[in-house]
Design a protein around this nucleic acid. Structure first.
Length: 222
DNA sequence: TACTGATCATTC
DNA sequence: GAATGATCAGTA
């Protein structure tokens, strides 16, 4: 039985609060689903389990997970040092001109305008079933965060649109970076080269560095 | 050990 | 095939 989408942020937060401190096994049992033994062949499993529990609705559409309240769900894997272990995927990078040429109407901005961060224990010495959920954080970027996200986005998208895709590495961007987001290294998408011709290239995604999610986590603990 | 580049499952 | 959910794993 599917969980109905939450019709307000308050309802969403109640649901998130209800699982804070619970283990992944407890959530899986509540939802009558089975956990994989390892994440190696099920890398998105925890995110999907929490989408299911919380009533996310967007499916695989390029939209915020909770569409009508405009909230995006992100799980945050926390290592034993208490800090995020991995960068956070935001969305696919448009590699062709005309898709989203301004920060204001970019998918990055829309997805990051309101995010429910759910910390999840990710110490690999703990069996998956015993890892616990943390206290969720409902967040919007503050002015300085948005300013830097915008700077990163402008710089990176400028390179994309100038046909400098081959020069983009994960080293660009203070908070936001572009990295491959593909089935494998042979995957291809259409992009443009320096002459403006359409060429095939590796699909890319926008990711948030851990320095950024660490800041969100630390601020919420005040 | 942190980080970048590579990869895996599912859905439509 | 391209979007979603991400973590894996080699190397600097």
């Amino acid at each position: 039985m599917r969980v109905l989408p939450p019709d307000s942020e308050a309802v969403l937060m109640e649901r998130a609060a209800a699982i804070a401190g619970k283990t992944l096994q407890q959530i899986a049992t509540l939802r009558q689903t089975v956990l994989p033994e390892q994440l190696t062949r099920a890398k998105g499993h925890i995110g999907e389990l929490l989408e299911d529990y919380l009533g996310a609705s967007a499916g695989s559409l390029p939209e915020p997970d909770f569409r009508h309240i405009g909230v995006e769900l992100k799980t945050l894997p926390i290592g034993k040092n208490g800090k995020p272990k991995e960068s956070t995927f935001v969305c696919t990078v448009s590699l062709l001109p005309g898709d989203s040429s301004h920060w204001e109407d970019s998918l990055v901005r829309r997805k990051l305008s309101r995010v429910l961060w759910v910390p999840v224990e990710a110490d690999t010495t703990i069996p998956l079933a015993q890892r616990r959920i943390g206290n969720a954080i409902l967040w919007s970027p503050n002015l300085s965060q948005e300013k830097i996200l915008r700077q990163d986005w402008d710089e990176l998208m400028n390179m994309v649109m100038m046909g400098q895709l081959d020069q983009i590495t994960a080293r660009y961007g203070k908070y936001l970076q572009i990295r491959p987001k593909a089935q494998n290294a042979r995957s291809l998408r259409s992009g443009i080269n320096a002459d403006g011709d359409i060429v095939k290239t590796l699909p890319r995604g926008f990711y948030l560095r851990t320095v950024f999610t660490r800041m969100i986590l630390e601020k919420s603990r005040f």
